[in-house]
Amino acid sequence: MTDTKEIKKTKYLNPYVGGVLLGLVLLSANFIAGRGLGASGAIKSVVVTTMTTVAPSSAANSGFVKEFRQSHEGNPMKTWLVFEMLGVLVGGFLSGAVAGRLKLKVEHSPKITSRKRLILALTGGVLFGFGSQLGRGCTSGAALSGMAVLSLGGFITMMAIFGTAFALAYFFRKNWI
């Protein structure tokens, strides 16, 4: 038991140390750019770019694109979050390389097939993508960054995300445990 625990602690960074480091990254974002971290906003840039490229005329009339344009002039891909998320890919890759975790695989519980896991991942992604737009940000942009600047909405979104996931956990337990 003690042995398992010791192995457990060596595989990843201590979570409290990881949390402090994450907080320092978030603090530097606020100090430098006056804004927090994010993730779903970068996807929004990609979607706006796709919509304006594929169907420029209907995109020009889209309330969604207009709303985005209000706060972002110029090329929709030249935004803070797009550059930040490119960094996340590089940082995640470097960390995986250092730790020897680079491997192509589908991670899933032995109780479900890879195919089922991928369908669930796709479904979860669609829901999270949609919800992040409605909620004006995801776990990073709305919940984590919002909480750090004491935004009321940040706390509400955080509680809604984790509360719902806890409430539904029982029904999806076979996919995880």
Partner: peptide, 25 residues
């Protein structure tokens, strides 16, 4: 929208196992 969006994201989290930032990772 903070509540409804959060609820939809929570469902996405337990079904998909990731949130946007972590899925990129």
């Amino acid at each position: 929208s903070a509540i409804v969006g959060g609820i939809i994201m929570g469902a996405g989290f337990i079904i998909g196992g990731y949130c946007p930032g972590t899925s990129f990772c």
